[in-house]
Amino acid sequence: MADTRTTRSVIAPLALESTTALLRELVAHLRENRTQLREEWARRITEAKLLTAMTPEEVFAEATAVYDNYLEALETGSIEALETYARNLSERIIPRGVETHEVVGIVLLLRDVLARSLFGKYPADFSRVLDAYEPAANRIANTVAVGFVQERERIIRQQQEAIRELSTPVLPVRERLLILPIIGIIDPQRARQLTEQLLRGIRINRAKVVVMDITGVPAMDATVANHLVQTVEASRLLGATVIVTGLSPEIAQTLVNIGVDLGKMNTVGDLQGGIEEAERLQGYKVVPITMEPA
């Protein structure tokens, strides 16, 4: 399987033959000590508190697969199989919340664990081992990290599109009460759509009160905050009161910093409180139903 043409790009061309031979020897050593090194690696991962979103069994299973792919890439110099594996791995672990630094971290740990073992085995050939092992190991680390980041970026792009397409629902909850849960980043374009939708919703549903929940809005700049204030003002012109709920401390700070007149904003801590306030404004009172014994 060891094809010198693919190996050439991996290692220094100088002393190619002997380096290839040495690398093969190194791989043989790593393969022999697979069980022990794999456990060592998994232990170091746990110690470094990486992949904490995964169970120890899962970490061990992935470690085994990465280990084998790693050795194959070292041996053949071909990173294709590893690339595919890294992509699959990323697809599986990104939804679990695994971060880029964790993936880079575990690959660097593996590189370290293997290097220590090799240096222990060949104490006299330190620099030759390094020459043979390091370029290949670095390229592998790079491949896995880049694969992960690319997958992440792909997912982020996909999510951005989904968010953009996701219309903000204007939900009639009960007579004349609308709820507008806003989730995700608001840009000026979305703020505009949202306002138009809300105003139409107010007219169609003859809404008196709107609870606009922005718990799911991670950040807000001055432009968007002003859009939000405009939404509140426009709703008032249609006779509807807007209650804003779920303002994060950061957004509250933004609003204060840009000097938004909070007197114009009717704010309540959370969605539930907002609905209670809406009921109060509408003159409703929620009372528990007393069950009559049959």
């Binding site: 138009e196 105003l199 139409r200």
Partner: peptide, 13 residues
């Protein structure tokens, strides 16, 4: 004031 249309309210603000 009654009957401000949604588009008009939007333009006003």
């Amino acid at each position: 004031i009654v009957g401000i249309q949604p588009e008009v309210a939007f333009a006003m603000v």
